[in-house]
């Protein structure tokens, strides 16, 4: 009895077995192992503690640890399922799994809804939508008058808020995405399909062959 600890394998805090993660996500065991190599690299880029801190995610995404971005912050917050300020390996794999081309569309729609539900109210509020539009304008260094921004937000709300209660609920969101599938385009990362081929540098020798699973 007792836990099994390999002398040669020292895993990061929050490590979970690839077989467990592969069973819960679209990834194969060897793909999860490849993601672990990527995770180790990302999680030691600034603080070598085997956990991805927000600055490390920013560094990976923007090559700049200090670049703030509303949407990158939202991605971090959703990946950080335990809300403890860091992304553990299991959280990393499960969250990236949603971005896999083979992940269920329903999962992508739900994830996008949570991304846009900035204040965790269970709805996408009009003010949140306007805040996000202003954020992307600021990021893009585009200047639009407040009137134009209001028109864009109003038009979208008129189309999406079919119940007319001033907020978009999950049911309305699903319906809106079904009419505008481009809205979840950024929820699919083609790189994640066959990650072991796309990123051979992350591949390590697999202890368990997928064919044996």
């Amino acid at each position: 009895m007792g836990c099994f600890c390999s002398k040669n394998t020292r895993h990061t805090p929050g490590y979970e077995e690839p077989t467990v993660l592969a069973a819960e996500t679209p990834f194969t065991v060897s793909e999860v192992e490849a993601l672990y190599e990527l995770f180790k690299k990302l999680s030691s880029s600034i603080i070598d503690d085997g956990l991805i801190h927000k600055e490390e995610l920013q560094l990976a995404l923007f090559k700049n640890r200090n670049k703030r971005n509303l949407f990158a912050d939202r991605i971090f917050d959703l990946f950080d399922m335990k809300c403890n300020g860091v992304i553990e390996f299991g959280e990393f794999v499960r969250s990236l799994g949603v971005f896999h081309p083979n992940a269920p569309v329903a999962d992508k729609i739900a994830f996008a809804f949570r991304l846009y539900d900035l204040r965790h109210t269970g709805y996408i509020e009009r003010e949140e939508l306007k805040e996000m539009v202003l954020a992307i304008l600021h990021e893009s260094e585009l200047i639009l008058s407040d009137d134009i921004v209001e028109i864009i937000v109003d038009k979208t709300f008129n189309e999406a808020d079919t119940k007319g209660d001033g907020r978009i609920d999950q049911e309305e969101w699903k319906e809106f995405v079904s009419k505008n599938p481009s809205l979840i385009k950024n929820m699919t990362l083609p790189y994640l399909k066959d990650i072991t081929i796309a990123f051979p540098s992350f591949v390590v020798s697999s202890e368990v062959e997928d064919s044996e699973m």
Binding site: K41, A60, L61, N69, I75, M132, V133, F176, S182, N186
Partner: peptide, 25 residues
């Protein structure tokens, strides 16, 4: 334009996770 606010928002670089897979050296 037929673009809605969410289409515009989705263009943010914050959603582009491909950076995770690029060498940081």
């Amino acid at each position: 334009t037929n673009l809605n606010a969410f289409d515009i928002i989705s263009l943010s670089s914050g959603f582009d996770l491909s950076g995770l897979f690029v060498e940081n050296d």
